[in-house]
């Protein structure tokens, strides 16, 4: 019974707090980025003002079905994070994330607009690029802990990080794709002036676009949760290290974002798959070997 109560507290906390923390992180991101580029930058709360403004726009759409897909995307992104913070099965979490992404992509396809569709195809490519590494991360946790359940992994006595260093590096690598940061912001970019207009989300506007933005905040927090998981060892200092590393990883992504130009899609898939092969599968072999000895 006690387990259910904590579970519900965590889920509610995630659903309520994640957009604020996510939005705040986005604001900090913009501030740091501006400073790196020698600008003053917008206020930290700017992302909230932006989304607020989106919700006041005139409601328009390009067809009758698009909003449906975005609604599904939003619900399933929330479900993904909720499952994760409820301590459920990692594979369930990953598959729910996949279905959410698919809804967003299909929504873009449905517009039949060239910019949205090319963005959708690139998003798909990115999905194909990062998915093996994400799955291997879950498998790594399983081989290490004997369980796919987040609740079990959090309370382990050893720190997964030391056994899953390769997988950790691999996961941070594909985080660049998931956070839509340069050099892999192929499908849509928060930087202005790109050939694809706004790619995947070109045909969304107003409230719908606002929902997508909020969903991304949710998603980012959930992804950082994954990073956090590497450092859990059942003690308060393990959790503290986890939070610090999450912030460091986020800063690293911002730094990478500002120091690379966008690359071709071939680089995205080649590098992500090579990383998954070498660091991901390599790490699994070593882990299996360590556990056998």
């Amino acid at each position: 019974m006690n387990g259910y109560v904590t579970m519900i507290i965590f889920v509610v906390a995630y659903l309520v707090l994640a957009p604020f923390v996510g939005g705040l992180l986005a604001g900090i991101d913009r501030k740091i980025t501006a400073r790196m580029q020698g600008r003053v930058g917008p206020p930290i709360l700017q992302p909230f003002y932006d989304v607020g403004k989106l919700f006041e726009k005139e409601p328009i759409t390009v067809n009758k079905v698009q909003d449906f897909y975005v609604l599904c995307f939003f619900i399933f992104i929330l479900a993904t994070g909720a499952f994760f913070f409820a301590g459920l099965n990692l594979l369930l979490v990953i598959f729910t994330l996949t279905i959410a992404s698919v809804f967003l992509i299909v929504g873009a396809f449905s517009s039949n607009s060239p910019y949205a569709q090319v963005g959708a195809e690139r998003e798909l490519l990115q999905m194909m690029a990062y998915e093996p590494m994400v799955l291997l991360t879950a498998i790594g946790f399983y081989i290490f802990s004997g369980s796919f359940d987040v609740s079990a992994i959090v309370n382990l006595s050893g720190m997964p990080f030391f056994y899953l260093i390769g997988i950790f590096v691999g996961f941070v690598f594909i985080l660049t794709i998931k956070f839509r940061k340069s050099p892999f912001d192929l499908s849509m970019s928060h930087h202005a002036h790109q050939e694809l207009v706004k790619g995947l989300v070109t045909e969304y506007s107003g409230k719908t676009l606002g929902l997508i933005e909020i969903a991304h905040w949710y998603e980012n927090i959930f992804l950082l949760g994954f990073v956090f998981l590497f450092f859990c060892n059942g003690t308060w200092w393990g959790y503290l290290i986890g939070v610090v590393v999450c912030l460091a990883a986020y800063f690293l992504e911002v730094l990478i974002d500002n120091s690379f130009a966008r690359m071709k899609w071939q680089v995205a898939i080649n590098s992500a798959w090579i990383v998954a092969l070498c660091l991901g599968i390599g790490n699994l072999f070593i882990l299996k070997f360590l556990l056998m000895v």
Binding site: E121, L124, L125, P132, L135, L136, G280
Partner: peptide
């Protein structure tokens, strides 16, 4: 395991582009 991870990534790719 490696095979199934990469294989399912490819599976999602060809189905979603058709779905789209």
């Amino acid at each position: 395991i490696g095979i199934i991870c990469f294989g399912s990534a490819a599976t999602a790719f060809y189905w979603v582009k058709w779905l789209g």
